[in-house]
Amino acid sequence: MGVVDALEWLNLTRHGESTGNVAYGAAVGTEAEEYDIPERDADVPLTPTGREQAKRLGRWLAELPPEERPTLAVASPYQRTLDTARIALAEAPYEVELEVDERLRDREQGILQGLTWRGVLRRHPEEAARMRHLGKFYYRPPGGESWADLALRLRSFYRDLDMNAPGGRALVVTHDAIIVMTRYLVERLSEKEIMAIEKEPVANASLTRWSNDGSRLRPVTYNDRAHLLD
Rank of each mutant, 00 (worst) to 15 (best):
D149T: 06
D162L: 02
S190P: 15
M131S: 12
K199L: 06
A165I: 00
P141N: 08
R183C: 14
N164M: 12
R183Q: 14
H124K: 09
R153C: 10
E127A: 03
R122S: 13
L152H: 12
A151N: 06
R123G: 03
G167P: 00
V172C: 06
W117T: 10
T182D: 13
P142G: 03
D162T: 12
G143M: 07
G119L: 06
Y158F: 15
K192F: 12
G167L: 03
P142R: 04
K199A: 07
R123F: 04
E198P: 00
H175Q: 10
P166C: 05
A170W: 00
Y138P: 00
T174Q: 11
G119Q: 04
M181H: 10
K136P: 02
R132A: 14
G167Y: 04
H124W: 15
R123L: 09
A203V: 05
L171Q: 12
A129S: 03
E200R: 06
N164W: 10
R132H: 11
F157S: 13
A170V: 05
R155Y: 05
K192E: 15
P201T: 00
M163K: 14
K192H: 13
E145M: 11
S156K: 14
E198C: 00
V172D: 08
P142T: 05
M181Y: 08
R122V: 09
V173I: 13
V172Y: 03
P125I: 12
H124L: 08
D160P: 13
M195W: 04
I197F: 11
V186L: 07
L171F: 04
I179D: 01
L150E: 07
D149N: 10
R155C: 12
A170H: 02
E198F: 12
E126W: 04
K192Y: 13
H175M: 03
R118I: 05
A165L: 01
V180G: 03
R155Q: 15
R188N: 15
E200H: 03
F137M: 08
D162K: 04
N204S: 07
W117G: 01
K199Q: 14
E126A: 13
S190F: 14
R140I: 08
N204M: 01
I194W: 06
L121A: 11
L171M: 06
V202I: 13
A151P: 07
I194G: 01
M181G: 10
A148H: 14
R132G: 07
L152P: 06
F137E: 00
W147Y: 15
M131H: 13
I194E: 06
K192P: 00
L189Y: 05
M163V: 07
E127Y: 06
L121I: 02
M181F: 08
L189D: 07
A128P: 00
L161G: 06
D149A: 09
R153G: 10
A170M: 09
E126Q: 14
